[in-house]
Design a protein around this nucleic acid. Structure first.
Lengths: 224, 224
DNA sequence: CACAGTTTATGAATATTCTTATTGTCGAAG
DNA sequence: CTTCGACAATAAGAATATTCATAAACTGTG
């Protein structure tokens, strides 16, 4: 899975690259628009992270070029958060998704994954962890061929944690990612804990889940 | 609630104006950039619909000008479908929401409403219809002071229909607006009908709801 | 170690959402 | 006017989500 990171801030680019490499992606960094255009022309990328705040030209020229020639490449646009905190529906922008700085790396990888999956249709591999196989197409999980019946929320949580395995995911991240609209959520509730608990119970029936950790004061983590 | 419609297509502008006037907004039309800038300078608008395809200049200049001087005005940018660069550029300048042509007028009014509400915080009036008062802040409804207990989905549906009162809203529109992700929804189900039914039952306890119509083959409508 | 304070886990009750099957209603065609 | 087919309303119930109260586990401190 090849990713092109178009970002002039080298520190950030490296941070992102390291994180994604960790997740099994192969990354290349382009610091300028021209570099990006060269890279895209010559290579076969699955996705591109495009920071619009580039020094040598408009980032959306890159996007335009990509959209003209390569249809199979997923693009996630990254922008600085403007004066207004309202998010705009990414689908209307022509990019496949977008993020505003600052963003959580875990959120980036989750979205990247989702976007690539959509783009490639159903050809993408299932997620596999400790014998469990997550079939993302149809929200099914199985353990060594035996299907496990998870609810949608349970699946979402499991998928998000697996996607960001070996990283602690906070309850806030889960809420943001799965429920979306934070404001409407009554936060003095432990509903995430409950879902995690139910999820664990179902997984535990099939095998030990000591790799599904609680990180006190922080959140949850799945280790591999 | 004052809205400035910046749109050179006069037919469309009038259509939008009439629709919004209907919803209780006070609208003014500007056909050109200069007109728009004049209007903004002199008056106090709550929101602006900004079509980027203007003949006499760059719609972005208008947006930029607005952002420099008036912070409390909500801007919804309207672009023709396919203008990728426009969209991204607009995002950069900080529009509050986007629509691509062609758009449903009901969707426009719903977004406009949401954007204004967000902008003004919680100072906005409640929605009122046939004695029912929808307090948007905290998802509560009351009839002549007596609270009515609606579930979230019921409230969402009620609000969307009230917001677009006197217009037929299709089941698809409700699905798109309230559930968002259409793809995950098993569409051979009548769950919307069921929610509508439950909603009606709750409203009906307090008063007759003959104003809450079913429009056969189309959808639902709330009349005033 | 014992304690208090805090965080997480658990079990159970409640509420909500969604599905399914059935019945009722409307409108067009004959 | 009747019949048929499509659509909507209804009822019941299954599945899921959330809340709540309480128990257990952990952390730091004396």
């Amino acid at each position: 899975m090849n990713i092109l990171i178009v970002e002039d801030n080298k520190e950030l680019a490296i941070e992102v690259r390291d994180f994604l490499s960790d997740g099994g992606y192969v990354c290349k960094i382009a610091n300028t628009c021209n570099e990006a255009l060269d890279e895209i022309g010559g290579n076969d990328y699955d996705a591109m992270l495009l920071d619009l705040g580039l020094p040598d030209g408009d980032g959306f020229d890159v996007l335009k070029a990509v959209r003209k020639t390569k249809s199979k490449i997923a693009v996630i646009v990254i922008t600085a958060r403007g004066g207004l905190d309202d998010r705009i529906d990414g689908l209307h922008l022509g990019a496949d998704d977008y993020l505003t700085k600052p963003f959580a790396l875990t959120e980036l990888s989750a979205r990247l994954f989702a976007v690539i999956r959509r783009m490639h249709g159903y050809t993408l591999n299932d997620l596999v962890v400790h014998g469990f196989s997550l079939q993302l197409q149809d929200y099914k999980v199985s353990y060594e061929g035996m299907p496990i019946n998870l609810t949608k929320k349970e699946f979402d949580i499991f998928q998000y944690l697996v996607l960001n395995k070996n990283r602690v995911i906070t309850r806030l991240q889960l809420t943001e990612h799965i429920w979306g609209d934070i404001l409407e959520i009554n936060s003095d509730s432990n509903f995430i804990d409950v879902h995690v608990r139910n999820l664990r119970k179902k997984l535990d029936k099939h095998t030990t889940i000591d790799w599904f950790e609680t990180v006190r004061n922080v959140g949850y983590r799945i280790n591999t």
